[in-house]
Write a protein that binds this DNA or RNA. Structure first.
Lengths: 227, 227
DNA sequence: ACGATGTCGACTGTCGACAGTTTTCCCAAC
DNA sequence: GTTGGGAAAACTGTCGACAGTCGACATCGT
């Protein structure tokens, strides 16, 4: 990516803020369900455990609030977002909204390079699926859909999806097991690629509606079991 | 909107944080273009002027960053978001994505009460238009589209629109004059209502595509004049 | 005159502390 | 056993201060 100087691959030195580090740690802890949904997070306790002051913790918490992982009540503090069935429906409905828009646009003007990149990502996803590494499979699945949206060329749309992706990870934690075989995963994503290659927006819409509907059903079934 | 208790409209008592107050003041200042696009905001200067410490200013700035009104560079500070032509396109494309989704859904199952509420809001908008109060007209216009999306019943979709609305206000500041007569405004929104009443998703999509396309053209023309 | 280097000022990142509020816990009263 | 009240503990909101870093200007060398 870097152009001129012959020194080679210098990864740009960026001293990471404490805010970002705390935000990452908290995000991972929430996704790993090391906090119970609805649990209150104490600023002082977190700052003690992490060995930092309260200021970075507060700012990180605000960041996670804007991403939908935490909710705040004035003078009460921050709480881990607990999703009910309705919010879950809303989240998948918004996901449908974003991905429909992207894939319908792509159907009309997807370059062969774009299709190739998507096909490559499906391969990566399949590798992750057969490897048995569950969290990696989830990330590669999200990566495919992220690439789909990124290919539409609208950065604001991509930013919205990235925000939503955090909540999607929160949803996915509700699923106890995936029940999906690697073959099923491969097929369902290949169908999306075929629809894209056909160039028909209507067919793409059908494909993405079905694809996200299946994903949504898995999560709804997960929450149905537990509650 | 509130349902049961017979005590009437209690505006929920919330002692406003300094953070929220600062955020509102900054938001208004940015929308009023009292800061130049791209201008750097000094935390110490702001905190001095507002008579508060730096902590609330920092947190408010992070809030506005998540809303797209500010951008931050590590160790450099916060800068007023400056929109280029491409970001502008992206914003209106996302708006189209959200409103299409809402109106297509509404076309299938809009209650008469919903249609009536939308019609009422068009009247309010028209009043604002003939009154000549420009900022009020803008807000009532946004309120109509907000109501449209809210009527679809997806709160997550509405939250996304609310975030985007802040950026839309930023776009609108680029327009020097509106050029739109009250009659034009009334007609263009009435067409949306007629499309909704027809119950045809396809017709709704056409209507919203045209409607947002016109709005986008106004803004693009505005940025085209200035640069 | 022009580019590189050293220095200075201003600013952000982070911290510890204080004040006011919320929550919890204990005890008394019914 | 349950309810109500009150004090103490814990917590959040806010503040002022210190240290590290960035940008601008002056200085030096060519």
């Amino acid at each position: 990516m870097s152009s001129s100087s012959g020194v080679g691959d210098f990864t740009v030195i960026q001293q990471r803020n404490l805010v970002d580090q705390v935000a990452d740690l908290l995000t991972q802890a929430i996704i790993d369900q090391r906090f119970a949904p609805g649990e209150r997070l104490s600023e002082v306790q977190l700052s003690r455990e992490l060995g930092v002051s309260r200021a970075p913790v507060r700012e990180a918490a605000r960041l996670l609030e804007s991403r939908g992982l935490l909710v705040s009540q004035p003078r009460r503090g921050f709480f881990v977002r607990a999703l009910d069935a309705r919010e879950l429906d809303d989240i998948f409905d918004l996901r449908l909204c974003l991905e429909r828009h992207a894939i319908e646009r792509l159907a009309l003007d997807a370059s062969s390079a774009t299709l190739a990149a998507l096909a490559r990502q499906v391969e990566v996803l399949c590798e992750a699926a057969v490897s048995g590494n569950e969290s990696r499979r989830i990330e590669e699945d999200l990566n495919f859909h992220r690439l789909l949206i990124a290919s539409a060329g609208n950065r604001r749309l991509l930013k919205t999806f990235d925000d939503l992706a955090h909540e999607l990870r929160l949803c996915i934690t509700l699923i106890t097991k995936t029940h999906e075989s690697p073959d099923t995963i491969a097929d369902s994503h290949q169908w999306l690629l075929d629809a894209l290659a056909s160039g028909s927006p209507a067919r793409c819409r059908e494909a993405i509606d079905y694809h996200i509907g299946v994903a949504r059903d898995y999560v709804v079934r997960g929450i149905g079991d537990s509650t």
